[in-house]
Design a protein around this nucleic acid. Structure first.
Length: 296
DNA sequence: AGCGGTCAAGTTGAT
DNA sequence: ATCAACTTGACCGCT
């Protein structure tokens, strides 16, 4: 029987593997030369960290890794414009990108991206839409450097009326470049958009649904977990991605707990492989390994 | 070395 | 009104 592919999200808690970023307030005080060097150094560091992360995943049976959005630091900051071609170690950077890409491919480690909360295609504010599309273009660019096949986002706010917010999302989705559209997926969230709200976007535009079962429990609709799992599964033209997490303190709290409780893992998922399940838990790689042990 | 304040960006609900 | 939560604390400046 085929096994589920489990995914680790961005960070490690126990392994000495860290990704770096740069803060604009500090960056802006540097000279032009120092700025270039700082970006160059940070990207090289992140590429080395990714290499370690992928090695850890391979050695520990973790089949998917989500890459942090700050991998190329400050890339989408409105006051900064840089091209990796202009960096002092461009050749080395390029080589490291392709090394990581080949390693993940040959070891069957899937890579995903999850743009942060500032990416909102349903906003009524043109400035927010502009920034969101810019941010998605960055993620598409990064996804090409590393062969990422999933760029997953939420719909965003409701602004008092879900229906018109979804309409704005659709309008903005339609104008996206196709290399973003081909990888973009949407996820049900814990307060506003349920799987039922999002399935029509698959029917209209073939947008796959990343089914988050914890969010579905916090923010339910008329569908059962089994029904939502099956329907979400069918929205995918590639291996589906689902999310698992456990609530902290047993309550229907939003924040994630350290580990995943066995009873929170839908039993039907075990019969659904091939399937990627990204594990969202504070204890990171320890939680993924713990869950794999519990499930298999 | 350790600690506290701060960080580009959106939106919501709890307090 | 403030703040934590969200895929994630990390980073800088001060002591």
């Amino acid at each position: 029987m085929k096994r589920i592919r489990f995914g680790l999200c961005c960070l490690f808690i126990s392994e000495p593997i860290k990704f770096k970023t740069i803060r604009y307030s500090y960056f802006s005080k540097l000279s032009k030369q120092e700025q270039i060097e700082k970006i160059d150094k940070t990207i090289l560091w992140n590429l080395d960290s990714l290499e370690k992360a992928l090695l850890f995943c391979r050695n520990n049976g973790i089949g998917c890794f989500r890459i942090t959005s700050t991998f190329l630091p400050l890339f989408t900051h409105p006051k900064i414009k840089y091209d990796i071609k202009d960096l002092p170690h461009y050749k080395e950077i390029k080589t490291k990108f392709s090394k990581n890409k080949i390693f993940s491919k040959s070891n069957n480690i899937r890579l995903t991206l999850h743009p942060d909360q500032f990416t909102v295609l349903s906003s009524p504010k043109p400035e927010v839409i502009k920034n969101s599309i810019n941010n998605l273009m960055y993620h598409a660019y990064l996804s090409n450097l590393l062969d990422v096949d999933v760029i997953n986002i939420h719909i965003g706010g409701a602004y008092g009326e879900k229906k018109s917010a979804i309409k704005r999302f659709e309008k903005n989705f339609r104008i996206l470049p196709s290399d973003i559209k081909d990888k973009l997926t949407i996820e049900n969230d814990d307060i506003i958009y349920t799987p039922s709200d999002l399935l029509p976007l698959f029917q209209k535009y073939n947008i796959p649904l990343v089914y988050d079962v914890h969010h579905h429990r916090c923010n339910p609709d008329e569908m059962s977990i089994n029904e939502a799992s099956v329907k979400a599964y069918r929205t995918w033209n590639r291996e589906p991605v689902f999310h698992i997490s456990s609530a902290k303190n047993d309550s229907l709290q939003k924040s994630h707990s350290d580990y995943i409780k066995t009873e929170d893992f839908p039993t039907i998922w075990k019969k659904m492989a091939p399937l990627t399940v990204e594990v969202e838990a504070k204890s990171k790689e320890l939680a993924v390994l713990d869950l794999i042990k519990k499930i298999y």
